[in-house]
Structure formats: structure tokens, C-alpha cells
């Protein structure tokens, strides 16, 4: 009975997030367009030399993905915090860390997955070949959930804090460093014809670790912030 109701609760959390996002579709598109615009700025700044662009492409796309998913974080808990639904979530008879995991999963579906889907287009813009694009998508698929999970901790910590939007970047970006290195590193290694599998394993291992630890940290942070 307990497990059944927990699964119902998790499904409810995910479905609720998606319903809400569908009623305010612009939010999803803002993140996506930020991603596109940020990547487009690089050729304008660096110059249209396709060789140069190809070498910096993995890094550029990854940094843009990092920033895009960070921008979306402020919405993760703040509207729930303002209308009191977060309090009700905290008072649900289920482990908060699991409910947070559900919320982060929905958030990733709405902000991370679109980035993955769109990345081939940007990869082509920057002159990556098909193989590199495939690998880029793979790393983004493994890496963007980590961004959402670590980001959830930052979002929970800065909830209701003045200047929270800027503060969150200060807290979260240094913690994103390994994801950036593993993700962009894999694509880079492949371009240099070096073994790239290790980078993917590392990314996968980091993902497993954040799935295990981040929800607890985020739940603890939420309890502190709601006080």
C-alpha cells in the first residue's frame, strides 16, 4: 500500500509539472532559444572560420547547455514556494527526497531533453561531422540530468533569498565543472582520435552518484529554505 501510494505520488508530481508547463509553454521555449542564441553568438565573436569553429564546438555547445539549464533552475521551486504548494509537498506522507527526484526528472524532461534534441542542429552549424554529433548528443543525454540534479540543490538553497538568481550561478557553476570536462572531453577526444569511452563512463558514474546524493541534499535544503 505504501509503495503503491508512493508511485502514485511520484507520477502525480511528474504529471503536474508537465501539465503546468503545457499551460505556460513560453517558459520551455525561452530556455531553448537562449541555448540557440548563445551558441550563435560564438561564430559572430570568433569569426566564421569553420576549422576554428569545429575545434571549439563541443566546448561552446556544452557551455551554452550549462548556462541554459542553469537559467531554467530558478523556476524549479520558486513558484511553488510563492503559492504555498511547496509547503504542501513537504507535508506529503512520502520521503521528500523522492518527491524532489520526481520534480527534477520532470524539469529535466522539459529543459534538458529539448537541449539534447536540438543539439545536432547547432553541431551542424559549427561544422561537426555526424559521428561527433552523435557523441555530443550522447554526452548531453548523460550530462543534462546531472545539471538538473546539482542545480536542484542550488535552487533549493537560494529559495527566497534576495539576489537568488545571481547567487545560484555562483553556487552551481563551479560544481558543474566535472560535467563540462567529461562531456566536452569525450567529443574532443573523439576528434583527436583518442579513446573517448572512458569519458562517457566517468559521466555515467557521476550521473549515478548525483542521482543517489543530490535529492537528499536538495530535500534538506528545501526544509531549511521553507522555514
Amino acid at each position: 500500500m505504501g509503495e503503491v501510494s508512493l508511485i502514485t505520488a511520484l507520477r502525480t508530481v511528474v504529471a503536474r509539472e508537465i501539465t503546468l508547463a503545457m499551460r505556460r509553454r513560453t517558459d520551455v521555449f525561452t530556455t531553448l532559444f537562449f541555448f540557440i542564441i548563445a551558441v550563435t553568438l560564438f561564430p559572430l565573436g570568433v569569426g566564421p572560420d569553420i576549422e576554428v569553429l569545429r575545434t571549439i564546438a563541443p566546448g561552446v555547445i556544452w557551455v551554452a547547455a550549462l548556462l541554459a539549464s542553469m537559467l531554467a533552475l530558478s523556476r524549479l521551486f520558486s513558484s511553488d514556494f510563492q503559492d504555498g504548494t511547496l509547503e504542501q509537498l513537504l507535508l506529503a506522507p512520502h520521503p521528500l527526497s523522492l518527491l524532489v527526484l520526481g520534480k527534477v526528472f520532470a524539469h529535466w524532461l522539459l529543459t534538458g531533453v529539448p537541449l539534447v534534441v536540438l543539439s545536432p542542429l547547432l553541431g551542424m552549424q559549427l561544422g561537426l561531422d555526424a559521428q561527433a554529433i552523435g557523441l555530443l548528443m550522447g554526452t548531453l543525454l548523460l550530462g543534462t540530468p546531472i545539471l538538473s540534479l546539482i542545480g536542484a540543490v542550488g535552487a533549493a538553497l537560494t529559495l527566497g533569498v534576495r539576489g537568488g538568481g545571481v547567487l545560484i550561478s555562483l553556487l552551481v557553476l563551479p560544481l558543474y565543472v566535472p560535467v563540462l570536462i567529461f562531456g566536452a572531453g569525450a567529443v574532443d577526444a573523439q576528434a583527436k582520435a583518442v579513446e573517448f569511452g572512458a569519458w562517457l563512463y566517468l559521466l555515467g558514474a557521476f550521473l549515478v552518484m548525483t542521482i543517489v546524493f543530490a535529492p537528499f541534499a536538495a530535500a534538506a535544503a528545501l526544509r531549511i529554505s521553507v522555514e
Partner: peptide
């Protein structure tokens, strides 16, 4: 920055503790 952004000392201490452990 997190510690100084939160006004209530108890909340500041607890929030920054989570950050330090992470």
C-alpha cells in the same frame, strides 16, 4: 555569498552547511 545573503543566522548556517558538504 550564500551565508551573507541569508538574514536569519540559523538558516544561513544550516543552508551553507548543506552547500559545504555537497
Amino acid at each position: 555569498a550564500l551565508r551573507s545573503a541569508i538574514d536569519d543566522p540559523r538558516r544561513a548556517a544550516r543552508a551553507s552547511a548543506v552547500l559545504a558538504v555537497v
